[in-house]
Amino acid sequence: MAGEAQTATGYIQHHLQNMTYGKLPAGYTRADGSVLGESTWTMAHSSQEAADMGFWALHVDTLGWSIGLGLIFCFLFARAAKKASVVRPTGFQSFVELVTEFIDKLVRETFPHRNTMVAPMALTIFVWVFLMNLMDLVPVDWLPMAAAKISGNDHLFFKVVPTTDPNATLGMALAVFALMIFFSIREKGALGFLKELTLHPFHTGKWFFDILLIPVNFLLEAVSLIAKPISLGLRLFGNLYAGEMIFILIAIVFGVGVLGFIGAGLLHMGWAIFHVLVITLQAFVFMVLSTVYMAMAHHRDDEHEHDQ
């Protein structure tokens, strides 16, 4: 749908820019050429403006859609849970129970410790991430165009898939990471957690050697610890971003004549069908890895040694 007014590059860039609300400094030259008299909180009108806003800016579309979808999840599931009947489950309740049971079973298998929070967390991640990924299946132009029409601003930035924003995926990964640290310290104590970071994987049993090994161990453990949330967030982001990108590229082909339209239609259909798998799988992977990280945080080495 690359119109005459837009180049393909412009179209892609427009689609990859979040609606950003942030602070622009005084004396800043805006996209339309005007110069700001004083620093203002405003919507970014170009990618450059969004980038110049720095850290103190919000992606309104990402947060809006993720919160909206999260509320839909909460509302539907809480209502199903509240109205749940023991003897006569209705259609939606059965579906909710199916998902819940699936998650419950999976968490029981991967998380052998006692913590009532992990299974609900897994359920939230799975359904919420799935819903956010699902937005990827809505044709790429529908919602942005509708938003542009409603707002009256043709150049409105509007990304509808929160998981194609690294802020969203890394934000969730960060929360999982925070929970990991929290449970590690709660289960093992601050000292136990520190010991885990400094006395593994190399351990001789003689204290003077161990002291020498602490820096090496700490480096290795810290890298592996920090790699967890980053890989968790980037995996989801990368998959969805790539999927979204291909949808955008296919959408460009729609504008290239009748043959392009038919070809793009077929391509779009094929990729969408394939993508159904990808979005489900990525939601699943995010959930399983979060559960596994929680299990790692609860796992104690000495406990393991006692078992043997």
Binding site: N18, T20, G22, A57, D165, G171, A178
Partner: peptide, 14 residues
């Protein structure tokens, strides 16, 4: 693709 406050917002939402 800028990393910004959205990160924290999403964590809190999560």
């Amino acid at each position: 693709m800028n990393i910004n406050l959205t990160l924290i917002g999403q964590s809190i939402t999560f």
